[in-house]
């Protein structure tokens, strides 16, 4: 059984890396798009009122000022405090906040276990990990349970929640509960650190039933995570930095200009009459359309 667990965990980890990488690559490899910025843009000096550099006279001659601190401040509020949900959807926030904090703590605990497996396994360190794992697991379980209830009861959310979404939340309740239990049992973190060490050396983890179950469920979670909407933990980088906050103007001779010029050479095969299919974007955009018939009143 331990050997099955060993390969299950490695398979899940590999699929997690592959799946996340594949999805991220899809976003990265997408061509440059037209600007679709949305204000306030966090790096703009005028972000307090939502202003942009377009408020300046002769803006194209002015030096561009970007505040990376503004982005950090925004991201901190959004990632740590879930500001958007707190302001606009307080009912969901009460479950979402502990759920996210719980997951953050579980991720930190997992990283801490890797460090412990590599040698730093003092009692203090393991005690800290037990605390973060215990609290993290509990928060995850409670938060996921609250979300499950809200999504099943609230008529605004119910029609948009699939049976798979509910299964996913139920699994997270189980994962949180198992993680909390595995963290707080006496010697739990030492056992976990040792198991992680063995896994890293491709050896069977040799764990108790409780820890084995926790690891199996955690592996199941990361196995399918890349194929769900939960990838927003990294796709959010693109929605903000590559779309909402992408306010770069095109400069002559820039890499951006070269990529856009390339896009104008793409072939177009839209079928509507006013588009001459089979031509390039540049050709279509400079050819006039046929006049359609009026459908009448």
């Amino acid at each position: 059984m331990d050997t099955v667990l060993l390969w299950w965990i490695w398979l899940a980890a590999a699929l997690f890396v592959f799946g996340c990488g594949w999805r991220a690559l899809n976003y990265i490899r997408a061509p440059e798009h037209v600007r679709w910025d949305l204000y306030p843009v966090a790096h703009e000096p005028g972000r307090d009122h939502g202003g942009s550099y377009l408020e300046q006279k002769d803006w194209w001659t002015q030096p561009r000022e970007k505040s990376h601190w503004g982005e950090v401040e925004f991201m901190f509020e959004e990632i740590v405090l879930l500001r958007g949900v707190r302001v606009n959807n307080r009912k969901l926030w009460w479950g979402s906040l502990p759920f996210h904090w719980g997951l953050y703590l579980l991720v930190l605990t997992s990283m801490g276990l890797l460090v412990a497996a590599l040698g730093l396994s003092s009692r203090l360190w393991l005690g800290l990990l037990a605390l973060s794992g215990g609290v993290g697991g509990l928060l995850t379980a409670v938060g996921a349970a609250m979300l499950l209830i809200v999504r099943s009861q609230d008529p605004r959310l119910r029609p948009y929640t699939t049976p798979l979404d509910r299964l996913n939340l139920a699994l997270l309740v189980a994962l949180g509960g198992l993680s909390a239990a595995a963290a707080v049992v006496p010697g739990g973190m030492a056992e976990a650190a040792a198991a992680v060490g063995r896994l890293l050396r491709l050896r069977a983890p040799e764990v108790s039933l409780l820890l084995g179950l926790q690891m199996a469920v955690a592996a199941l979670f990361i196995f399918y995570l890349p194929f769900t909407r939960m990838v927003h933990f990294f796709s959010k980088y693109f929605t903000y930095h590559a779309v909402r906050w992408d306010d770069r103007p095109v400069q002559a001779g820039s890499a951006l200009e070269r990529r856009l010029r390339g896009a104008l050479g793409f072939g177009v095969d839209w079928s509507a009459e006013h588009i001459q299919t089979g031509k390039s974007w540049a050709e279509v955009a400079t050819t006039m359309p046929e006049k359609p018939e009026d459908p009448g009143e």
């Binding site: 999805r23 899809n26 976003y27 997408a30 061509p31 798009h33 679709w36 958007g84 949900v85 606009n88 959807n89 969901l92 979402s96 605004r156 959310l157 948009y160 929640t161 979404d165 909407r229 990838v231 927003h232 796709s235 959010k236 693109f238 929605t239 590559a242 779309v243």
Partner: peptide, 16 residues
Amino acid sequence: LQPLMLSLENCVKCQT
């Protein structure tokens, strides 16, 4: 394409 893919694939349907 990129903004569309991101919006199609990442809505968590929280109704915020």
